[in-house]
Amino acid sequence: MTASNRRPRPLPTSKECRGQFEQEVTRLMDRLYGTALRLARNPDDAEDVVAETVSNAWRKLDQLDDLAHMEGWLFRILHHTFVSHWRRRQCRQEKEVDIEPEDNDIRFSLFEKLHQPFLLWWGAPEKEFVNALLHEDIQNAIDNLPDGYRVVIVLVEVEGYSYEEASGLLDLPLGTIRSRVSRARTLLQKALWSQGQDAGLAKCCGQPSGTSSGGDL
């Protein structure tokens, strides 16, 4: 009795198990939906991905050794579910994913645009810029990334997967993940800079400073 309480093995047909499953899904719903929305970009697709995830998870519940591990397991299923949708679309829209970087984008850095070394004791414009960004600004910037870049940035930066895990999930070589993460960050920072300028955020602190040099303290 005590041992089974410590390591509950879920039984897909039991009512008790269904209750626990529902409780956990309900608790994680906002994160599941938020992640699906960043991946899929549109609310209807995101809802379908979450629903399919829950359905797949229930079907495979006997593969889960402990309900305590359900959170990570659910997110893995969510990513697999999205990726299978995405791959089908990728086959149809090959060009959308395989976007090569443009040389003039590679060096872009938001920090270098905002940082003013001589204002060290007065404030940090780059921090003010980040604090002033709206949740929606960041969501828009991610949503507008090309598919191949958006997916890796959500996996690595939002969900915290390692490059190797992302490589496994997306069935892409490690080097491709590495270069896409780097490129996605550049594109994201460029988009945030552009949105910040449109919103007037960069007005008081947006002096391009070139490459900032370091200096030992």
């Binding site: 719903m29 939906y33 979450v50 960041i138 994201l188 945030l192």
Partner: peptide, 15 residues
């Protein structure tokens, strides 16, 4: 800090 803001963009109230 920027990364934290990006990570938080994954939080969204489910309809």
């Amino acid at each position: 800090q920027l990364r934290e803001r990006v990570a938080r963009s994954g939080q969204q109230e489910a309809p």
